[in-house]
Computed example of a mutant assay.
Amino acid sequence: MLRIGLLGAGRIGRVHAQAIAAHPHSQLCAVSDAIADAAEGLAAEHGATARDSMEIIADPSIDAVLIATPTDTHSDLIEAATAAGKAVLCEKPVDLSLERAMACQAAAAETGQPVMVGFNRRFDPSFTALKSAAEGGEIGKPELLSITSFDPAPPPVNYIKVSGGLFRDMMIHDFDMANYLMGQLPVQISAVGTAIVDPEIGRAGDVDTAVVTMTYADGMIAVIKNSRRAVYGYDQRIEMLGSDGLLQAHNILENAVVKSTANGVTGAKPTYFFLERYMPAYRAEWDAFVKAVQGETAMPVTLGDGVAALAMAEAATRSAQSGQPVAMADVLKPVAK
């Protein structure tokens, strides 16, 4: 039984707490949060205790920590936890700074402790089935990947100001998904973005609508489309075209009823947001982490994967700002050790 400390009791922390408590081989023992009432309330729900983050990390009875705190604390907590001999699952992104994330990766590697980055979409049943089919050669050689990710509504502008921007905060999931499906990093990234949904987002220095095109050494192309507004629900689709066919992962709908009348054919909308859409993926993600820590499998999403996705977000940010394509080699070179 793995004894777990949860750092962060906000919305995503609560999701993780449910997964930890429900798993037969993990026990939620301690919870921390900058807001004491939040930590105490969540701890009480699961029979845990509310404690300070560094106390949890220093406790030798805690086997692993799950980091669900604000992004600007992630690297420091990863380093502290691994230095204390803890396994770590950290929510994305590793950091807002690529250089800091790479330094964190190096420091954690010296400890030998396992670290997993929370790219939960890799564990979505539809997306894993698409990857399996592609790797099985069912559509021949993959040639063109298209990832659509539209939120139902933008977050508050106050969140936008500290999020690191759409490419680091929202599209980073899609960068990781592209890496997961393509099995390699792109060589070049081109991005365009605009603040067409909410001008306040633009005044805050961010975009709310963006398209990124990625090219690969073997000629493959991937396209990612993001928007902070889709009035019909949470739009999450993947399409992969290959030499022998097409693979598609469609939206998960609110229900499976289709009405067909003389007036037309209608069906339900997509599920509203990520909590409804990806709860099975969060549970599968935690199960994969437990198995990896127990030595049953390799760590499925590494700290290196987190750094790679952040580097792609950095390249996209530079491209959107300059209007020019950005080579991944140029992004990685200044921080390469």
Rank of each mutant, 00 (worst) to 15 (best):
V211T: 11
R237T: 15
S243N: 04
P270I: 05
L247W: 12
R228V: 03
R229E: 06
M220L: 12
R203Q: 08
A222Y: 11
K259S: 09
I238Q: 10
E276N: 14
F274E: 09
L247D: 07
A204Q: 00
L247N: 08
V265I: 15
A210E: 04
P270E: 07
N251Y: 08
D218S: 08
D235L: 12
L246G: 01
N226C: 14
T266A: 11
V257Y: 06
I221W: 07
I224L: 15
V207P: 01
R203K: 14
D218H: 11
T209K: 04
A217R: 14
V258W: 02
Y232Q: 10
S243E: 12
I221G: 04
A268F: 01
F274Y: 15
T271E: 11
N226Y: 10
E200N: 02
A284K: 07
A249G: 14
I224T: 09
T209R: 10
A222L: 06
A217C: 11
R203Y: 01
A210C: 09
D208G: 04
R283V: 03
M214H: 05
I224R: 07
A281Y: 02
V257M: 09
V212H: 08
M220P: 00
I221Q: 15
L247R: 13
S260I: 15
G202M: 01
G264S: 06
I252V: 14
R283K: 08
G242K: 12
N255I: 01
D208E: 06
V197K: 06
D244E: 15
Y234K: 08
Q248D: 05
E276L: 14
G267Q: 05
E276I: 02
I221T: 15
F274L: 10
R229H: 13
R277I: 00
V197L: 05
N251S: 06
N226K: 03
G242A: 11
M214R: 09
D198V: 03
T209D: 10
I238C: 13
H250C: 05
Y272N: 09
R237Q: 15
T209F: 12
I224K: 07
L241K: 13
A230I: 00
L246N: 10
D218V: 08
V223Q: 14
I221E: 12
A281T: 04
T261I: 06
M240F: 07
R277K: 15
G267D: 03
V207W: 13
A281Q: 02
L247H: 11
V231T: 08
R277F: 09
V258L: 13
D206F: 04
N255V: 01
A217Q: 11
A256M: 09
E276Q: 14
A217W: 11
A262E: 13
S227V: 01
V257H: 13
L253P: 02
A210T: 00
D244L: 09
S243V: 09
S243R: 04
Y282M: 04
D244R: 12
G202T: 01
P199R: 01
L247V: 07
A222D: 03
T209I: 01
E239V: 12
F274R: 08
K269R: 13
D244K: 10
S243M: 06
R228H: 12
V231H: 05
D208Q: 02
